[in-house]
Amino acid sequence: MNSVILRVAAQILKPVFLIFSVFLLLRGHNAPGGGFVGGLVAASAFVLQMIAFDSAEARRHLRFEPHAFLGLGLLCALSSGIWAFFQAKPFLTGLWIKLQIPVFGLLKLGTPALFDLGVYFVVLGGVMFIFLPLKDE
């Protein structure tokens, strides 16, 4: 597609999409949102690039190949389950640590967030994995 409006819009919208996707990812902790939607929104930023320019441009913006995201995401999600082994709990048990950070206050970090991050990367990688070769043809 050769449209100046779309190209300019794609450039401006990319950071908006990405920030919104991270927002969705973090919000998914206790409210609607999460890794799956977050990953889809992030992927749509790059799919928009792909439609406005070409797949090479989208690949350049993605920086890593889609399968790297897939592998990273799977490992990330898996590691969230493995932590439980060290505390003799069953696989995938949710574990939490509480951190007192001076300015922000109490921060609770848990393995479910790690799992969600993994899902985010898997969805991002998976969607790009399907769509990039389609555009190449």
Partner: peptide, 23 residues
């Protein structure tokens, strides 16, 4: 007692490393 999840974890780890070692 973790033996029962190893048949899932091992192929998943292998698949992830294969994906990371794509080239």
């Amino acid at each position: 007692k973790y033996l029962i999840v190893l048949p899932i974890i091992i192929p998943l780890v292998a698949a992830s490393f294969c994906l990371l070692a794509w080239p």
